[in-house]
């Protein structure tokens, strides 16, 4: 009973409240008007900046997902199959960044990418560039880079867990039947790690889609994401109903994504 009560009070009720807000409006005198209409949802479709930002956020999250998988999978594969005795140490090294504050990591990139940053100074020092490269910071590039750095461990962990769960005698069995290491990877190891890949991709996508700190600190005007809009609507703009409508759309998007990834994971697990 307590868990259910907990979920009801701290999760379902706030969501319900938010859902209600999304139909209300704000009066001239800056008070919430409790009259029901679909105006906020209409505004989302009508005003370009909202849906464009949402699409851009998904595009950023998509890239982050791909890069996290491209980095996380080989790392997990190496650790699980080839690291031998160093496995535990390397695993800890992957995990440690998660213990470091998000802000510290975001500011670190600011220091690296800024116009007087480490990278630009280095590039000019070795005469690769004459002027600081401006696109490095305050750009979608910086956001994708930072989010990839932050969420790669989240993609890595489920993939690693999936790889660790593959019985090693299946790999031996494959070699025994004449499959080369490459064939074994594509025909046995990769298919059996798909649930981990799906879980990792979901983590990376969902977490980066809802991120607002990286775009706030490193995104600049062109790197704004949907959560920044929600934050400002609930803050300075004082338009909670519109903010709630956007939030609800995102919630719907994320929940349906989780639903599909769950189905996909089930389809590919066999134990």
């Amino acid at each position: 009973m307590p868990p259910l009560a907990w979920v009801t009070v701290f999760l379902l009720m706030p969501y319900l409240l938010m859902f209600c807000y999304s139909f209300w409006s704000v009066s001239e005198s800056q008070t919430i008007v409790h009259s029901w209409s679909l105006a906020n949802y209409g505004q989302l479709l009508r005003v370009d900046v909202y849906w464009q930002t949402l699409l851009r956020s998904m595009w950023i999250a998509g890239r982050v997902t791909i890069f996290s998988l491209v980095l996380g999978y080989p790392l997990a594969y190496f650790l699980s199959f080839y690291a031998g005795k160093k496995k535990d140490l390397l695993y800890q090294l992957v995990i440690i960044p998660l213990w470091v504050s998000y802000l510290v990591r975001a500011y670190a990139w600011k220091t690296i990418l800024g116009s007087d940053g480490v990278l630009n100074t280095l590039l000019q020092y070795v005469h690769l560039t004459k002027h600081p490269l401006e696109f490095l910071l305050y750009s979608p590039f910086a956001v994708v880079l930072t989010l990839t750095h932050i969420y790669t461990p989240f993609a890595f962990l489920p993939i690693y867990a999936a790889l660790e769960h593959i019985p090693r005698n299946l790999v031996e069995g494959s070699h025994d039947l004449g499959a080369t290491p490459g064939q074994t990877f594509w025909k046995v190891i990769f298919p059996l790690s798909i649930p981990g890949v799906v879980a990792g991709a979901t983590f990376a996508f969902v977490l980066s889609l809802g991120d607002f700190l990286a775009p706030l600190l490193l995104g600049g005007p062109s790197g704004i994401m949907i959560s920044n809009i929600v934050v400002s609507l609930f803050g300075a703009a004082y338009n909670w109903p519109l903010g709630a409508a956007i939030s609800f759309c995102m919630l719907l998007l994320v929940v349906s994504l989780l639903f599909f990834s769950e189905r996909l994971e089930k389809k590919w697990s066999f134990s």
């Binding site: 069995g173 494959s174 039947l177 004449g178 025909k187």
Partner: peptide
């Protein structure tokens, strides 16, 4: 390497590929 040897093994716990059907398992080699 094991994959070049004309030797096949029946493993203690069979080591059948769980994601493949019986037929696909047999066809693997």
């Amino acid at each position: 390497p094991p994959y070049r040897r004309r030797v096949n093994t029946v493993f203690q716990h069979y080591a059948l590929f769980p994601h493949l059907t019986v037929e696909q398992n047999v066809a693997y080699g």
